[in-house]
Amino acid sequence: MAKVLLFGAERAFFSDSTPQALRHLLNNALCAKTPDAVEALLLEARECWPEEPDTHIGLYKFLFVNKRYSEAEAAVWAALRSASRQLGIDRNYRRLKVNSADWSKRQGAERLYLFSLKALGVIRLRRARVGQARSVLSKLLELDPYDEIGGGVFLQIARSFDEDNDR
């Protein structure tokens, strides 16, 4: 049951540079038997490794699946702050440009940042903040023009709300 609530069956961390002790804790969360146990382990990871984007990503995925969207959004912001610190870029995604970082990297803080930006857009859609979702997802596609992260589909959904209002 915890696997469905957390990440899926593959692995509980997303970066190749995740510290070994954090990997162990996140993998324990992946195997935990109850949602409360999963959450407790994820909160422990966040407390011990607040600078690691993986701690926040695991938490926001868990919170999103459990429909705790406000808390999930707060965890996304923490992931974005963490990744932006690692990259040495502005933490305000609105100010970022294609040349702010090497967004084409398939590993590292760049990828985690883009992934978290997509999560922010999806969570805002779930919270019925369509205009804000559209803004985030538009920025994501500006930084990820080949849509490797998969935000384009969600941007189309956000734009469809405008089309519905035009009818």
Rank of each mutant, 00 (worst) to 15 (best):
T34C: 00
S15C: 07
P50N: 08
D54V: 00
A101L: 02
R111E: 05
L25C: 02
N165F: 15
D102H: 04
G121C: 05
W103G: 10
L25S: 08
R11L: 09
V65L: 08
L87W: 03
N28P: 04
K118T: 03
A2P: 00
S15H: 09
S104N: 08
P19N: 12
D147W: 09
R127C: 10
E51T: 06
S138I: 03
E44P: 06
G58V: 04
F161G: 12
P19R: 04
N66W: 02
P53H: 02
K3M: 11
G8P: 09
A29D: 12
E142S: 12
A133W: 03
E44L: 07
T34P: 01
A119K: 02
A128D: 15
I157H: 11
L6N: 09
L41G: 01
A29F: 10
L22R: 10
W77P: 01
S70C: 11
S100N: 01
D36H: 10
A72L: 01
E10L: 15
R94L: 05
V122A: 04
W49L: 05
L141P: 11
A9V: 09
D147C: 04
V136I: 06
R23M: 13
F13H: 15
D166V: 09
A74E: 13
L43G: 05
V98N: 08
E163V: 14
G108H: 04
K3F: 06
G108I: 02
G58F: 05
L80R: 13
T55R: 00
A37Q: 05
A2Q: 04
M1Y: 05
R91Q: 11
F115D: 14
R127N: 15
Y113F: 15
Q107V: 00
R11F: 04
H56W: 05
A101V: 07
A101E: 06
D166I: 07
I149F: 01
L140P: 04
N165R: 09
L120Q: 15
T18S: 12
D90K: 13
W77K: 13
D164I: 10
E47Q: 14
V76E: 01
S138Q: 14
P35L: 08
V136P: 01
K61V: 03
S82E: 03
L125V: 03
G58Y: 00
G152S: 14
V153N: 13
A40H: 14
A78Y: 07
V122C: 07
A83Y: 03
Q86L: 13
R91M: 11
A12S: 11
K61Y: 02
D164Y: 06
L6S: 12
A109L: 02
S135Q: 15
T18D: 06
A109S: 12
L87R: 03
L96Q: 14
L25V: 03
E110A: 03
D166P: 00
